[in-house]
Design a protein around this nucleic acid. Structure first.
Lengths: 213, 213
DNA sequence: TGCATAATTAGGCATATGCCTAAATCTTGT
DNA sequence: ACAAGATTTAGGCATATGCCTAATTATGCA
């Protein structure tokens, strides 16, 4: 325990401020721009104190990632339970800040073995959770899982979100508008076709077409 | 062509060796692992010589990226002109080494302004070129561009390729098999349905192949 | 042959980074 | 009030990095 958990509000949020600073630097300069002294300066404290909260840089990165992931899990649950789960899940995946951060974390994981396992596990878990959520939604909406395999849709969603995040970070947006419009219209037609089925599984109702051609 | 650089052609491939070493380190440790001394050691030469070929690290990264991009452009042209362009373009996008490298370059671009413009331009250009190639192939195959907007397909392809690359680098492969199988079967059905298309467009045989515009 | 140019080698400086040990101060529960 | 733990401060070392100036050797060409 000790420092690893938010003991109480006593630290005046020092730990939180450190993680915030870490995220900011990752977004502005990339993960390689994160150094102990830079984080400390940005958080407004001496570098020694940072070392007190996070003995090593690995600890810092893992904690930063952990916090983001916890937030993501919460958001994900909310999205999956919302009235329009497909739209909500898609919006969540595309969320700019999160995607950009995950991008950096993924790159970071490549040369920090201690962090890699955390991120790899999280990636895998997220894909599985998304798949399972989609599966349930698809069943509820009467969407043909052969036509839209949840696992494939989950992978495609993750992929497009990453493209958007990367491009945006580099200042381009070639194809974003069209892709977003296309996906949204697809989601709308999917949700419109299955929406009026609260609590029950459709499987009936003639309009199984949902994705007609 | 292919004269691109080679200051004089007598470097006994030193320049090439430097770029190779740079790529290797990027793949093994990430872009942040690339330092002048490390590259020099790996290429089997003194760090001073590296500085002779590439005055700054920006120059080195830009040259490394440039070389990869030239190779990609060549491969792309070949894929677009092949007998099964859809499969070829997809395979190219998913190619492991290239995707991983582009991933690193993208991350690198975030905190190296001098490199950013190169990469951003390349990303944008690649998306446009892919879109245009898909458009032409779709027209040839009689694939409805409303149902498969080339721009959207190009973005989705780039996205899935990135997910595969990232996951593989981290040691996971959740959903890869299913996604690859799904895409391949989709491509097969598209190519099979389009090949015997009646009309003025050639079916196969590469004589009048319309790859250019 | 000679010569211009490419290719290679040499040492070093200013800076930044990760991580360490020890002590002083503040907060808390009792 | 007091002890125990949490929080903050302090200085420093070994290492790595980017980049610089100059000199020496190898090579191709007229």
């Amino acid at each position: 325990m000790a420092v690893d958990q938010e003991k109480s509000g006593t630290g005046s949020g020092t730990r939180t401020r450190i993680l915030d600073a870490t995220e900011e630097i990752m977004l502005e300069e990339g993960y390689a721009g994160v150094s102990s002294r830079k984080v400390a300066t940005r958080a407004g404290l001496k570098s020694k104190l940072l070392h007190y909260y996070f003995a090593t840089m690995d600890d810092l990165f893992i904690a930063a990632f952990q916090r983001r992931e916890d937030l993501h899990v919460t958001r994900f649950a909310g999205a999956a339970a919302s009235a329009k789960p497909l739209h909500a899940l898609w919006d969540l995946a595309v969320d700019a800040a999160s995607s950009r951060l995950y991008l950096e974390f993924n790159a970071l994981a490549c040369h920090r073995p201690a962090v890699r396992e955390f991120i790899a596990r999280s990636n895998s878990r997220d894909r599985i959770t998304t798949t399972s959520a989609l599966q349930s939604v698809f069943a509820q909406y009467g969407i043909d899982p052969e036509r839209f395999p949840p696992k494939v849709v989950a992978t495609a969603m993750a992929g497009m979100a990453r493209v958007f995040a990367t491009d945006r970070a580099l200042g381009t947006s070639e194809g974003h508008e069209e892709s977003l419009a296309f996906v949204r219209s697809l989601l709308a037609s999917l949700e419109a076709a299955g929406s009026p089925r609260p609590g029950k599984y459709p499987t009936d109702s003639g309009e199984h077409n949902a994705v007609d051609q």
